[in-house]
Design a protein around this nucleic acid. Structure first.
Lengths: 244, 244
DNA sequence: CGCGCAATTGAGAGCGGTCAAAATTGGTGG
DNA sequence: CCACCAATTTTGACCGCTCTCAATTGCGCG
């Protein structure tokens, strides 16, 4: 039986707080209303008023903004266990779009259900707020990368961050992970051209650091990659369950 | 008498919700514990556990991250009426540093006081969450700029955003505003070198778009500047008090 | 008056962009 | 199983934006 505690979200939250059976039950309740979305069809579109949030249980999505000139900047990717559109539940129109990279499964979460759950289980609320704040820290780190890292470091850092996130939900390790992104996705996320992304990937591969190929990322030399990226996962704050 | 409703924070929040006398009184209570900080002395330092948040009432500060190689990326600036360290009140160690750009005045806000205030006045809580979400949207827009705008557009967009924010608290207009930043601040925020910032500013000045000089920003041609930056202030969400 | 910081300007180099084309891959239907 | 098409990946040539290095100027303050 694949109980709730093996869901990606529960795995992630339990890295932060140990959740009781009761809290897990509340979490499970939030997972009703399962829905499926096709690749490429926007879940949320820039400018729309937003109503519900989602818990992503299968597949990857990306959040992005389109510029007037048509170029796209991906703000971040969400993987299983991540919330979608959490911040905008309470608030105004969405300022960005959300697109599934592949067919995904997500549980719709109504604002009221979330508020009820928070009231019942403060520790669960803490854990979810922790996750939200971690998402924010990732956006900030992304911003820093765009401002202050060159293309190689950016790519290395990106691959490592994604690996660390996936590891937390049991979908990756220090040797690598499955990755459905195209080089265009990488380009739009890293503020590079797709052509240059390709060159950077070749460089990493030829230097024996990492391989991005056929939907798989392989860390050929994890430590040297960390050194290149100056990757310090402190901002991910996933080293310690500190509320036992 | 300079009542609470003329404080920068109240002015800003009232662009979002009309606050009652009672709500304003609660807001005023949060402004006890006034403190002064000198320029250049970090309020919060990267990696420290953080305890309190602040409401900035006078002066400017910047939030930044230092890279291992010593370079600095400024994530955003805070102006009067902004919260400092709000997100990290509930949570772990700060992932960034906060430094006053000049001598500032700020009111320390304890987590408990904030929670009490939220419980008493849900509308005030809504307004503060709106402000927090607006801050996040600004970080995202900043990220987009670093990824997808060239130096001129970036600078133009930055000057316009700051102008719009200052206008909301009564410290700026479409003709310009006082700005205590150095060109090094601009460089660290925009992901450019200080040298290039200088060239970009000269360009804007010579093109008759905007002048940055002697602590003042002057919009010489607001509309053309907006066009260059493709500045769409929708993400600032400050067009409408929609909860009367 | 002189020190230090901020602003300014010039010259040269390089990272990453654009344009263009070819090779590879995966999916689809005959 | 094979042929074909679209999407993705790969590579080369050239260009330009922005960086670095270096020097100079301007300004506020002791």
């Amino acid at each position: 039986m694949n109980a709730i505690e093996n869901s990606p979200l529960a795995r992630k939250l339990m890295a932060f707080v140990a959740l009781s059976a009761g809290e897990l039950a509340v979490l499970e309740r939030l997972h009703q209303r399962r829905r499926t979305f096709a690749a490429g069809r926007d879940l949320v579109h820039q400018g729309q008023p937003e109503q519900a949030a989602y818990i992503l249980s299968e597949g990857w999505v990306c959040s992005y903004k389109i510029q007037p000139d048509g170029s796209r900047q991906i703000v971040d990717f969400q993987i299983p266990g991540d919330f979608l559109g959490l911040r905008s539940v309470l608030l105004q129109a969405s300022d960005h779009s959300i697109e599934p990279i592949m067919q995904i499964e997500a549980a719709e979460v109504l604002a009221d259900d979330l508020i009820t759950a928070f009231a019942e289980t403060p520790r669960l609320a803490m854990a979810i707020l922790w996750a939200a704040s971690r998402d924010e820290a990732m956006v900030v780190e992304h911003l820093v990368g765009l401002g202050r890292r060159d293309a190689d470091e950016r790519m290395a850092h990106f691959l490592l961050e994604l690996g660390a996130r996936l590891e937390l939900v049991g979908m990756g390790s220090k040797s690598g992970y499955d990755c459905p992104l195209t080089q265009y996705h990488l380009a739009d996320a890293l503020g590079l051209s797709a052509v240059h992304v390709n060159r950077v990937l070749r460089q990493l591969r030829e230097d024996g650091l990492a391989t991005f190929r056929a939907g798989k990322v392989t860390f050929d030399n994890y430590d040297r990659l960390v050194a290149l990226a100056e990757f310090d996962p402190a901002y991910l704050d996933q080293a310690r369950p500190f509320l036992k």
